[in-house]
């Protein structure tokens, strides 16, 4: 197939892409990288790093699994978009590992419905490792990691059917969801499950807020993934992220003032640079 490639024009070199924001984006990336390295090094050396506030949804994770244990019902944890090349899937894996270990410790079934064939093996591995770490490898049931379909609504139909039949007492919807979010969460509500959602897609947040008991909003999905590890090196990356965020807020305020009070026809130096 490579022979069929038709090149539009001759090859061209350039240090940075000719589309806008490449230089500023590269600089932002380097700043974040250096900051992260600095904070991680500090954490590794044992120096104190800023504390991360408690997130209610994460605190409720143990409570939800405990409730399922008391009721003798399974825990359902899933992410719709769980392809291996997405950062929300990577965050989901952290939650999956944590939940699997807790479920193994409490002797509670964990059900995971998968929508991506490639992720299936990874999910199986993560859950199996959770059972191994809890010292109960024999309790792992491979039939509870279920590939439903890679098509959105076929997957949803499978999951809500499972919810109705097996009635998990806790439902954790973590990662990227689309139109299926409301169907899943409302079905969870109908069966009386305690529900925790973590979502970085602004489209579906309103649905989760309306239907779930706890919601981790936007970046809290990623922060939570570092937080539940309780490892200062991991939380160090969150500290670096917050430092950049504060700096960006500063830039926004300065940029707004410059734009508001600049002379007629003059350039806003910040706007010009960020478009560079």
């Amino acid at each position: 197939m490579l022979e069929m490639v038709q090149l539009a024009s001759g090859a061209k070199w350039g240090f940075l892409a000719d589309d806008g924001q490449a230089v500023s984006g590269f600089c932002m990336m380097m700043i974040m990288l250096i900051l992260t390295y600095y904070v991680i090094t500090r954490a590794r050396a044992g120096f104190p790093i800023p504390h991360i506030r408690k997130i209610a949804g994460l605190e409720a994770l143990d409570e939800a699994i405990g409730r399922a244990t008391e009721m003798g019902q399974p825990v359902h944890i899933s992410s719709f978009r769980s392809t291996v090349d997405q950062q929300e899937s990577w965050a989901f894996w952290v939650y999956l590992a944590h939940t699997a270990k807790l479920c193994a410790q409490y002797d509670t079934r964990i059900i995971n419905c998968v929508s991506d064939e490639i992720s299936l093996a990874i999910h199986e591995e993560i859950i199996q490792t959770g059972y191994l770490e809890a010292g109960r490898p024999d309790a792992y049931n491979p039939d509870d990691v279920r590939y439903m379909s890679n098509q959105q609504f076929a997957w949803v139909a499978g999951v809500i059917g499972m919810l109705e039949r097996e009635r998990p007492a806790a439902q954790l919807l973590i990662g990227r969801f689309f139109a299926e979010s409301l169907v899943l969460a409302e079905q969870g509500n109908l069966i009386g499950a305690i529900q925790i959602a973590a979502n970085d897609s602004a489209f579906q947040l309103p649905f989760f807020v309306a239907t779930c008991d706890y919601v981790l909003i936007g970046e809290e999905l990623y922060v939570g993934a570092a937080y539940i590890s309780r490892d200062p090196v991991m939380t160090g990356t969150v500290v670096a992220e917050d430092m950049v965020k504060m700096a960006l807020f500063g830039v926004m305020i300065v940029g707004t003032l410059l734009e508001t009070f600049k002379a007629e026809g003059a350039d806003n130096i910040l706007r010009t640079w960020f478009n560079y």
Partner: peptide, 20 residues
């Protein structure tokens, strides 16, 4: 090819579509 494929179209539409 998701994003990789999509970015490629910016430079080469026919090549990105593997010519067909």
């Amino acid at each position: 090819g998701s994003e990789n494929w999509f970015i490629g179209l910016r430079d080469d539409f026919i090549g990105g579509m593997v010519g067909v």
